[in-house]
Amino acid sequence: MNDPVIDLRGVTRRYDDGPPALHDVSLAVKPGECVAVLGPSGSGKSTLLNLIAGLDRPDEGTVTVAGTRVETLGEAASARFRRAYVGLVFQFFNLLDDLTVLDNVLLPAHLAGAARRESREHATGLLATLGIGRHADAYPGRLSGGEKQRVAVARALVNRPALLLADEPTGALDTASGEDVRDLLNDLRDGGQTIVLVTHDLRLAEACATRTVGMRDGRVES
């Protein structure tokens, strides 16, 4: 029950002959924590997120998420693991414009083979909880940036993941929409969702995070 949701030990990742993108990084995130990862461009933040999500593999060290050694998984198993345990939120939403809001949210559930009726009820409930239930039958092109990010969060949560990873979730938003997303992340944190944010937005980190991790040159600095 008290095991960390994320447990990285001695993780190093190299892409070429230069300095490693990550060097000997160890990090644990407990259930219910909201951790903000801060640092300048090139500090290793996105590489860290990709390793946690199983989108990349370390050259050295271990990456354990929700009790699974994700660095040992093959491509198909890694995709199944993400669908079951990890929700991903990106800077630019990555919604499909030819699907309705509800169908965008339902897509991960369909890919996971979840029961259609139960998934639809859950997705509809998520949209209502996130304040965008009225847009369920609309298409993403009709929504504001803040509304699109709420749809992206609902999509990330539809399979009830143990972990929510957010990569610059306010980076493409205006001030008002960014505040909406901060409020949303606060609500999720208060509800016990484990969250890791990669961000340049100090206001987002200060408002949402229970702990911050500073990175520089591929290392955890603070």
Rank of each mutant, 00 (worst) to 15 (best):
N94D: 12
N94G: 00
N94K: 12
D97T: 13
V101K: 06
V101Y: 03
V101R: 02
L102N: 02
L102W: 02
N104A: 05
V105E: 00
V105T: 11
V105Q: 00
L106G: 07
L107Q: 06
L107C: 01
P108L: 06
P108Y: 00
A109Y: 03
H110D: 13
L111T: 12
L111A: 14
A112T: 11
A112Y: 04
G113M: 08
A115R: 14
R117P: 00
E118K: 13
E118A: 15
E118H: 09
S119L: 07
S119D: 10
R120E: 15
E121Q: 14
H122N: 02
H122F: 13
H122E: 10
H122K: 11
A123H: 02
T124R: 15
G125R: 12
L126T: 02
L127K: 07
L127V: 04
A128S: 12
A128H: 13
A128K: 10
A128T: 14
T129Y: 01
G131S: 05
G131H: 07
I132A: 06
I132E: 00
I132H: 02
G133W: 11
G133F: 09
G133D: 11
R134G: 03
A136N: 01
Y139M: 11
P140V: 04
G141W: 09
G141I: 03
R142E: 14
G146N: 09
G146L: 10
E147S: 12
K148M: 12
R150Q: 09
V151F: 06
V153C: 05
V153S: 04
A154T: 05
R155F: 05
R155E: 06
R155G: 05
A156D: 08
L157M: 15
L157K: 02
L157E: 02
V158R: 01
R160S: 09
R160T: 11
R160A: 10
P161M: 12
L163H: 01
L163C: 08
D167W: 02
D167G: 01
D167K: 02
E168Y: 05
E168D: 09
P169L: 06
T170A: 07
G171Q: 04
G171S: 04
A172T: 08
A172K: 08
A172C: 04
D174G: 14
D174H: 12
T175C: 00
G178N: 06
G178M: 08
V181A: 09
R182S: 13
D183C: 10
D183R: 15
D183P: 00
L184S: 01
L184F: 04
L185R: 07
L185K: 10
N186I: 14
